[in-house]
């Protein structure tokens, strides 16, 4: 595996200059995610109205993988209904777990497909999944 498969321009840009790394006013819910072994630590804030994810932002610190995965997840989920978002998250988790994912489903992930090679770096899988698993939990609570 080449280094560039993981640390691509897209990943590095999102990790260093994410447009979603900010505070948003009046979030409807916030959630904290943490990988105790490596210190990745993020807080996600959501504005969810009538079952639609209107806006999301994050703060916190972590490695390039966890920061960019968080940013790209937000980019993918904004504008989606909770149901659509839950489906996308499940597809992403399946992709990282190397489960069979159809072409159509992959398309729904858009830029997030870039993390498919992270399974070649097993030590970093939890960094890529942190935001997604954290969001999955909070969306389940919204139903």
């Amino acid at each position: 595996m080449e280094i560039d498969d993981i640390y691509s321009e897209l990943v590095m840009e999102h990790s260093q200059n994410s447009p979603y790394k900010k505070d948003i006013k009046n979030p409807t819910c916030s959630v904290h995610g943490h990988n105790p072994n490596c210190g990745d630590d993020i807080t996600l804030s959501f504005v969810i109205e009538n079952g639609i994810i209107k806006d999301v932002s994050f703060t916190g610190q972590g490695c390039a993988i966890s920061q960019s995965s968080t940013s790209i997840m937000i980019e993918t989920l904004i504008g989606k209904t909770i149901k659509e978002a839950q489906k996308i998250i499940d597809i992403f988790i399946d992709l990282i777990d190397r489960k069979q994912v159809s072409k159509e489903d992959k398309k729904l992930l858009k830029n997030a497909q870039i993390f498919k090679n992270i399974s070649n770096m097993p030590a970093r899988v939890k960094c890529a999944l942190l935001a997604w698993k954290t969001t999955k939990n909070i969306l389940n609570e919204q139903n």
């Binding site: 280094i3 640390y7 993988i65 770096m121 970093r124 960094c127």
Partner: peptide, 18 residues
């Protein structure tokens, strides 16, 4: 962690974290 992943690909095994 990003640095240690690169080191891993170069077969240099170090610890990173807290």
């Amino acid at each position: 962690h990003d640095v240690s992943s690169i080191l891993d690909l170069e077969n240099v095994f170090v610890r990173s974290g807290n």
